[in-house]
Amino acid sequence: MIHRFLPLVVTIAVLVVGFLLCAMQFPNFASLRVVGNLLTDNAFLGITAIGMTFVILSGGIDLSVGAVIGFTTVLLAVLIEQGGWDPPAAFAAALLAAALFGAAMGAIIHVFRMPPFIVTLAGMFVARGMAFVLTTDSLPINHPLYGDLNDVAWRFDGGGKLSLPAMILLSVLALAVVLAHWTRFGANLYALGGNRQSAELMGVPVARTTVAVYTLSGLLAGLAGIVFSLYTGAGYSLAATGVELDTITAVVIGGTQLTGGYGYVLGTFAGVLIQGLIQTYITFDGTLSSWWTKIAIGALLFVFILLQKGLLAAWTGRGGEPAEA
């Protein structure tokens, strides 16, 4: 039982130890303010990474998420500032567009039996291109509701607060855990990632599940785009470039296997926070170049992949223990 959760336990342990090390070096680190900011600053990344976890669990990958975030921010800015839309209507339109975009990619992947890597790579260019078609400038969003939404927060004593993006992230996380482990859809995703052919023989609706998982990933990328536009107060076609790789990194550090079938949403959440923690550490230090974040994350990713490989080998190599009654 224990080693099933071992990758997850290791990820969470790294997060806790990392946090303690930071707290020892910087007395101000261990505060609700830092924790709150960690959640707020990484909310869009976390929401996207949760969608990516589902895609990777099903044996696929979605490279379009960063571009979808960028497109969403631009779409919101254009609709609100140039089209005079109410932000809630613009949010709904953006979510719908992102979800449909994901559904289209899922349908192409299933119907034409195309590798998800290629289809979503093309999707990445399409989404980024559409953002540029809308505008190449950075468009500030000055709608009063944006200011109000940014003020929504659950404040704690001592200056810490749980902002709206952080709340969205935690809600998405809770729903995602339920989806993964307490619904047939979740079981079907793991089944699909384990072995597509067997899953099909066991009656898993492969077409529906494939389209649904890319729709979900698109929808969450759209939601992340909304959060990102709240966070930056602007729409920019180059926003969130390379975020797809950050999210894949978070998923892998979180213990999910890139080949699908094994992993946990909670691990991805920890993976996102580890990345955020490294970033925060470098900000606190003040003398280190921000590129050290990339180097540290790269090293960590490498270690985690080796760890997973070792664990999996130890786990499957030992064979079973048939216990006949």
Partner: peptide, 14 residues
């Protein structure tokens, strides 16, 4: 069957 799912999930998938 699916080696990555639990025995119970394999029995009751779908």
């Amino acid at each position: 069957l699916l080696p990555n799912l639990s025995v119970a999930e394999n029995l009751f998938l779908g």
